[in-house]
Amino acid sequence: MTDMSVQNSEYEAGMGDYFALLKPRVMSLVIFTALVGLLVAPVPVHPFIGFVGVLCIAVGAGASGALNMWWDADIDAIMKRTAKRPIPSGRVQPGEALGIGLALSGFAIVLLLLATNVLAAGLLAFTIFFYAVVYSMWLKRATPHNIVIGGAAGAFPPMIGWAVATGSISIESVLMFALIFMWTPPHFWALALFVKSDYGDAGVPMLTETHGRDVTRRHVIVYAVLLVPVAVGLGFTSIGGPIYLVTSLLLNAWFLKGCFDIWRRDDAAADADNYTVERQVFKVSLYYLFGHFGALLAEAVVRASGFGGL
């Protein structure tokens, strides 16, 4: 029977379809922040151990993405943005996604444990659990604050990178976590404002649907303001410095201006210019995060090259 069904299927999933289950674009952010967390840590790591550490974090993130796609296949099919994902488009079977997600989770956690330490592996296991179970299965369909709490899953990678190098948690890694955690809500709500009808159609209680779009605009500016002390504060720890502080102040001013503009206008104005400001803020939010972590990396390079006393 199985052989016949295989022969009759019109489409054969390729490696690209399975790779798409791992959410490669999200993975690029995970790889970058985890790598920065690892490189800015005060303890040197053997380059190959560091490579394996980042690989495991990336694979773990990809595995949680596959588990998320398995669980959310029903709502992904409804939303335009996600309808072409491998499961709703029929290219990959749900059971395959579940199997790949579980297998890669086990692989990533065990290899990270063997290559580095218990803390890093434990944090990775908790991150996968948090994203796949706490966010995807519980929060996403239950509360409009799904993004706020669920954002923690995306905030762990630099903390895991730091743990790979040091085997510990410190104020620096906590603040790197807090930076991504506080950045996620305004980043995502800016997106929710310009893909307006999708989440409502799928029955996902996004803030725009449950509390209205004006409330969402207020939340964007509130979280952007709360983000400032976290982002700037990181500059005063051992991994910060003048490059980071200048970068952070400029990026915060840019991001705050955009979030302020979102707050000050209504949907009529947004409709008139096809959500230009919201789209721009979403783009700026990406520069914001890459800019901050890029500046941390630059500080580490300056310190390593012997100019740390400047």
Binding site: H46, F48, I49, V52, L55, L111, L114, A115
Partner: peptide
């Protein structure tokens, strides 16, 4: 290759 190289390094 990954497991072999990791073993050598360790």
């Amino acid at each position: 290759g990954l497991i072999f190289a990791l073993t050598v390094v360790k």
